[in-house]
Design a protein around this nucleic acid. Structure first.
Length: 666
RNA sequence: GGGCCCGUAGUCGAGCCAGGACCAAGACGUGGGCCUUCGGAGCCCAAAAUCGUGGGUUCGAAUCCCACCGGGCCCGCCA
């Protein structure tokens, strides 16, 4: 008679992991016995790593290739070694979750799980741990900062940046569920040129109250202002080039650049005629717009009260818009860090002084440069950073000749600042920043922050291309995150309207909202972060297999079953779930804890997308084949219900990790 | 010139870090089936891949190493 399995620590239940450990122990036992009988000592193998998922269920649930490793030193065929290993493991090890151990050609040792025991263990674990099932806690919790999005406040967030937001947010959710103390930070890059241009244009217009969404409103002002200023500058430069008899090449280049900007201006003018003409008139009255903008930057760096008021006011308006967009996508931040604060607190200056004292800087035309290459050689960082001996580290300009700071310098200071509050810092930034992120690490070594250098993680995001091209805000070739959300919600709404007319409209709207947000998030998360991919509407608007809607539909169907039943009873045991579709479903549930911890420790949310999709797929197969409400055997009915409940729990957990919201009806 | 990343069916994509039964998951698309049963946003079946190319290491390579090819990106007193 099977004794009842009672998992010890509910929050740490890991059914498939328990099976795996049993296999490991059995294999080790077999191995040690082999070592004894073979007379000569065998090399110490990493037995754990030889255990893999076999390619199909006929080979059991875990398989080891250890015999291949041993065959040589044993001077025997792998299959013979495997037979001995299987036989002794079977004979000597205490087996509970393992049903059988067999050797198969050409030399694998296959472990089959006792599915009855695994089913009982898994379903009971889910029942007891509930929404905590699978969320294995780390043994080394770390205070972790995830910085992501950090979009320049000059324009609305576009779908490319949204990829950073969605991955950053998912990472934070995963790490937090793993037991780390996670804070998300948004870095407000307000001391650069772009925000100054935006404030300049806004001031010229006499600081109007935004119509519509503030980030879109201000973004429009920024685009028009930046374009007009650029054209003014190019005209001046061209005139100067001609007057000084510059080379033809220079003149051609400047003319070409000017033509391009004029083209952009024409587009903007047709889109926003009023603002364009008004700003054009106002800017032409300014003797030297470039100087006005430069002055804004300088005054802001010095924290001049009037400039401060203007810059903060206009930036805050944009951030309100950002927050609104991000909130729609279920993304929130714990902290909003102003770059200007960093500057005013003297952190940047302090860093620059430290670097200066290190002896790794030099002066170039008044600007301060950091000799990165020298530092790399001095500290022998090539191996640390994983770069080849020929990798060239160009010097990094720390300060301009007028003494003002540059973004990379501020970023180093900022990352150090973050380490003041955390043991580990994760920067979610585009792949184009890889060199800059190397430089941050090198700067850490120079300033003696070696521990921080190790705990500093750059999480690269590959570009999201639009119709195969890079998005260009300047050329208006981009899709905003808001547009994507709007379009997806409206598509989802018409689907819900069509399929579920009986649901009240208010609920249909909320459902469409959830489906849409989840669809967008899933479409982004289901492709690995580092890959550059094409943004395609078809993928986002796909509500079929391998989409959030497919996963949600599994949840909806399970809700339908429970609704129809009306009441639920506990089954007496869990011994009737023997159908292959039921066992496949249980097996998937049993693997969730391992999948979760691997996805989290590898910082790979995409793994969980695959898991969610697979679980939903297994459920749909089960749903198709296994009846519940019409089944006459009550005990079987309640056992199946227990399975459905477990699937619902895990679906909900995994959805929560990815930031997907599930609807009971859709 | 130096470097980083990516290259898997018509398309999109997992597997690569930790090599093993790979005649390579899954999806979209294509072709064919399944509604008297818990919601068809579903299920079943079929066709479709020189794993960019060439070498090397290994008993064994999509996976590791080298070279090359193709695509993206970086090497700014922009951010």
């Amino acid at each position: 008679m099977a004794r009842t399995i009672r998992p010890k620590k509910q929050d740490q239940a890991n059914p498939f992991g328990s099976f795996r450990r049993e296999c490991e122990t059995a294999l080790k036992t077999g191995y040690l016995s082999l070592q004894k009988t073979s007379g000569h000592s065998l090399p110490d193998f990493d037995i754990v790593s030889t255990l893999k998922d076999p390619p199909n269920p006929t080979f059991g649930h875990l398989a080891s290739s250890l015999s291949f490793e041993l065959a040589k030193s044993q001077k025997r065929k792998p299959i013979e070694v495997a037979k001995t290993l299987a036989e002794t493991s079977r004979r000597l090890a205490k087996l509970d979750l393992v049903e059988s151990i067999e050797a198969t050609e050409p030399g694998y040792v296959n472990f089959r799980a006792n599915l009855a025991r695994l089913t009982e263990l898994t379903l009971k674990s889910v029942q007891l741990a509930g929404s905590e099932y699978g969320l294995l806690k780390t043994e080394a919790p770390e205070r972790t900062i995830v910085e992501h999005t950090s979009a320049n406040p000059a324009r609305p967030i576009h779908i490319g940046t949204a990829k950073n937001s969605i991955f950053g947010d998912a990472l934070a959710r995963l790490l937090s569920a793993r037991g780390h103390d996670v804070r998300t930070h948004f870095y407000i890059d307000d001391t650069g040129r772009q925000v100054a241009i935006m404030a300049y244009g806004y001031k010229l217009l006499n600081e109007p109250i935004p119509e519509g969404k503030p980030d879109h409103f201000i973004g429009k002002i920024y685009s028009v202002t930046a374009t007009l200023v650029e054209i003014e500058e190019l005209k001046k430069r061209l005139a100067l080039l001609k007057k000084t008899n510059a080379s033809d090449a220079d003149i051609v280049a400047a003319t070409k650049s000017l033509d391009e900007w004029v083209g952009i201006a024409a587009d903007l003018r047709s889109k926003y005629p009023e603002e364009f003409d008004l700003l054009g008139k106002l800017i032409s009255r300014d003797q030297d717009p470039e100087t006005s903008i430069g002055e804004l930057i300088r005054k802001y760096e010095k924290n001049d009260p009037d400039t401060n008021a203007l810059m903060r006011r206009v930036t805050r308006m944009v951030l309100t818009g950002f927050e609104e967009t991000l909130r729609r996508a279920r993304i929130r931040f714990d902290e909003w860090d102003w770059e200007s604060d960093l500057l005013w607190a003297g952190r940047v200056a302090e860093l620059v002084d430290q670097l200066k004292e290190s002896g790794f800087t030099f002066n170039k035309g008044g600007a301060l440069e950091l000799d990165v290459a020298k530092a790399v050689e001095k500290f022998g960082l090539r191996e640390q950073l994983g770069v080849t001996p020929t990798f060239e580290f160009p010097p990094l300009t720390l300060t301009r000749s007028d003494g003002t700071s540059l973004y990379p310098t501020r970023d180093i200071a900022y990352t150090l600042y973050k380490f003041g509050m955390a043991e580990r810092v994760i920067n979610v930034i585009g792949t184009e920043q890889s060199l800059a992120q190397f430089q941050v690490k090198v700067a850490f070594w120079i300033t003696g922050h070696r521990k921080e250098a190790e705990k500093f993680i750059y999480f690269p995001i590959g570009h999201l291309l639009l119709e195969g091209q890079r998005m260009s805000a300047r050329r208006g070739r981009y899709v905003t995150f808001d547009q994507v959300l709007d379009e997806t919600v409206s598509r989802a709404k018409s689907e819900v309207d069509r399929r579920s007319p009986s649901i009240p409209d208010e609920i249909r709207q909320r459902t469409a909202d959830r489906i849409a947000i989840s669809a967008v998030r899933y479409a982004i998360l289901s492709v690995e972060a580092v890959k550059s991919t094409n943004f395609v509407w078809d993928k986002v608007l796909n509500f079929e297999t391998n989409s959030a809607a497919f996963i949600n539909y599994a949840y909806t169907r399970s809700s339908g079953i429970l609704r129809k039943l009306g009441r639920i009873e506990q089954p007496k045991t869990l011994d009737l779930l023997k159908d292959p579709v039921e066992q496949a479903l249980v097996l998937e549930l049993s693997k969730f804890p391992e999948t979760f911890s691997q996805a989290t420790d590898d910082l790979n949310p995409t793994l969980l997308c695959l898991f969610a999709n697979l679980l939903a797929q297994r459920f749909h197969e089960f749903y198709e084949k296994s009846d519940i409400s019409h089944v006459t055997n009550d005990e079987l009915k309640w056992q199946r219900v227990a399975l459905v409940l477990a699937v619902r729990t895990v679906l909900k957990t995994v959805a929560g990790l990815l930031g997907l919201e599930l609807a009971e009806r859709m």
